[in-house]
Simulated assay, not measured.
Amino acid sequence: MEVGIVAQRNNSRAAALAAELRAALGEDGVGCWFDESTAAAIGDPAAAASVAGFDAYDLVVSIGGDGTFLFAARGAGGTPILGINLGEVGFLNAVRPEGAVDAVREEVGAIAADNAEIREAPRLTAESDGFESVPAVNEIVVTGRRGHGGGATFDVDVDGSDYTAGHADGILMATPTGSSAYNLSEGGPLVHPSIDGLIVTEMAGTEAMPPLVVDGDCEITVRVDDADHIVVVSDGRRPHELDVPREITVSRTEPPVRLAGPAADFFEALGKLS
């Protein structure tokens, strides 16, 4: 068994817990590998590995907040991820630090015995003329230049049917997992993670349609003709600039995120947003 561990950067508590996990799992004969920042923080650069290769391990452990979880998920592929919450909102991280060692040991044992209860959450990707975005756990954003005098005219179709057309800063397409993140700040709806849906939210539209929740298998097409360029962003990172006119298709992609350990209490996490 091998476990990949990512600790929140510049967080001594997260680094200390990563070192504690390594010691405990080492006693069980489990190999541990860390992203470069975590390996440096615990003083063991020889244990560093690229997060991009974490899909080769049996389990990935994220220590920190939802941002750390998203970073770990980018390289985890179909490998199960267990999130340890260090006082953040914790939509993706259900394990408290005081129970982390036992929880990780229990999950490693369950995976080894092939009886782990793994949940799945969707990922999204954007495609256009040979371009494919990095898969997103939370959201894909298609945007023009934001602010005064910015934006573009966006035409949005859902499975080939017109949904909206008009001037906006951008179009945001989110999973239920991401409904409480950027989507919420742009006026989009909260969607419980048990719902099989895809959210479409106009960003600062001049004559905006209400946010829309459609079936999770729907395909969203965004067309732009009148901007200098547009930018596609996946989970707030790796912006990719594309020329215009342009048509972009957003839909589910494989593999889904595979979540290990106990499920987070969605409503408890909501209470931490205020």
Rank of each mutant, 00 (worst) to 15 (best):
L198E: 08
L273R: 15
L124R: 12
V108P: 03
G188D: 08
L21C: 12
L86E: 03
L92G: 06
G99N: 15
G77P: 00
P176I: 14
A76P: 02
E241M: 15
R237A: 14
G99Q: 11
V108S: 04
C218N: 13
H167Q: 12
P80H: 08
G109Y: 01
A24N: 11
I199W: 03
F54W: 13
D58N: 14
D28M: 14
T175C: 05
E268N: 10
S179T: 12
V200C: 12
T143S: 15
P80S: 05
V200F: 04
I81N: 07
C32N: 04
L184H: 10
V232T: 03
A14D: 03
T153H: 08
S37H: 14
G65K: 08
A260W: 04
A208I: 03
R96L: 15
G87Y: 03
T68D: 10
A56R: 13
P122L: 00
E268A: 15
D28L: 15
A227W: 01
H148I: 11
P80V: 03
G166E: 09
G26R: 07
G65Q: 01
V104H: 11
G151W: 04
L198K: 08
V231K: 00
E27D: 15
E98Y: 06
A174C: 00
D155M: 06
H167V: 14
Y182T: 12
A152T: 09
